[in-house]
Design a protein around this nucleic acid. Sequence first.
RNA 1: CGGGAUGUAGCGCAGCUUGGUAGCGCGUCUGGUUCGGGACCAGAAGGUCGCAGGUUCAAAUCCUGUCAUCCCGACCA
Length: 567
Amino acid sequence: MRTTQLLMPTLREEPSDTEVISHKLLVRAGMIRKVAGGIYTYLPLAFRVLQKITQIVREEMDKAGGQEVGLPIVQPRELWDQSGRWQLYGDEMFRLKDRHQRDFCLGPTHEEVITAIVNADVHSYRDLPLLLYQIQDKFRDEIRPRFGLMRAREFIMKDLYSFDVDEDGLDISYRKMYFAYSAIFERLGLDFRVVEADSGAIGGNVSHEFIVLARSGESLVVYCDQCDYAANVEKAEAVFEPVETVTECPPLETVYTPGRKSVAEVTEFLGVDPARIIKTLIYMVDDVPHAILIRGDRELNEVKLKNYLQATEMFMAPEDMVKEITGASIGSVGPVGLKIKILADLEIQGMSDAFCGANRDDYHLAHVLPGRDFVPDAYADLRNVEAGDSCPRCRGELLATRGIEVGHIFKLGTKYSQAMDAGFLDEDGVKRHFVMGCYGIGISRVMAAAIEQKHDDDGIIWPMAIAPYQVIIVPVNVGDEQQVECAERLYRELQEAGVEVLYDDREERAGVKFKDADLIGIPLRITIGPKSLKQNKVEIKKRWEAESELVDQDKIVDVVLSLIGKA
RNA sequence: CGGGAUGUAGCGCAGCUUGGUAGCGCGUCUGGUUCGGGACCAGAAGGUCGCAGGUUCAAAUCCUGUCAUCCCGACCA
């Protein structure tokens, strides 16, 4: 491709309305343009990257026994009523009506359609297992679309659904996908980690996330330095290591703490360690107030709390509600004498001679002993794991890192097949429900994640496997016939050798072309200039290295082929 | 949905406090000189100042409403 013919509107200046680096660079590199909030046009360079990612995903899905299908984006309400999710999905589902006022939605996911299809046309255990996938646009009316393609409302996703006769079958399908996903991210050339995950609203019990490591990532994951345990902090189990029980704890005492509310203020005022504070949070859980206790230096994990209580709706009580329930302001609340449900993190049971709010403004209690001064209704693992904690598997040390969730695999079981009464006849002629799994990869998010992970001050550094073009040829001066002649010849030879090559034939100064080449992140750059040309050589520069090297003109094709792994 | 900010030429911005017929840089077009990391000179095109009301002799500027975008909080591939 010649750059004079390519729609590649690069920008010198940073767009003002972008925050994250991938968004900035996608816009600056002339790859995407915004059409509306969270909705983007993919320009040619971006489209090629997406095609490459798609192709790798497709190949690995096919290799694992998947069959590609096309599913509708616009879906009728009836389908979603069958699973009950027309009600449950909430505002994130983009709903619309047709001319007859019938309800439809833009598919945020495709469990319902696929289950209906399979139920209609698959009747026997002989037809199972079945792995069906699609790579298409999905639409979620995000509360707040942000970060460009990282959290768009319209996005490209691959999802595969597995249908098996039983749990053993599901295990096999799940494992296939686990390995296929690992192969995909390996091929994409990205640093990633597989972590145990919370399965959230989609349901099911076993779930893994594929995380592309990047400092800017929204997901926090922990992993063990000794074994292969790795988990999203939402899911990561906290290990409770009991300390020897303290038998001596002086009786309760009320202390005056004027105006001290936060843990930081109270500990500073009293001169004690935050780990000796019992932090009390009031939550409304399905309209029932709960007091949640957690050590002062820890963070509550709302996902764990929600799962433990099997809550559907849950939120932190606002100031006035807290006052009504406890008689005190936020920051002066404590479990002693509290008449509502009390749920305590595991660590609370190991505490003694602790401090907590007195349920009276400006006062705290000292010498608090759980079990003596109050008895929680239950102890549970409710806190966020932190770097330095013990590994729940092997007691090694947990390390933390940030990343971007690009893939998520779930065992669904019979959640949807039961709801929609979708099943097959087994060997004995008995009707049974499909045992399902679902496996997603955010294709457009992968593109953004790759940039988040691989860029420098000059622009994108595409991994070879997903670069829009593998090589860019830059003649320093298109006014020089020799250079043009050489560039044209190499352009032809590389194309004939099957290399994806971009030829910058614009009448621009060298600096402009170098800047653009770096910005759009082409892995290899061949520079044709007067100095090297005199020696019958050209320069080749790897985007990820600072120095370039001289190569004989008649060897350049072989050198390129070996660098892109084709030789 | 709550809190904050911003809408002026394709992009980045100034002008608004103190109303008076819209400006800068980059990009674009023409001609010329240049040519190895975002050149220089000369000329040119391009804007109903987000939209709708209002105040005023006069509104980008003041007032009201509205829409959009971005950031921070509750959701997720």
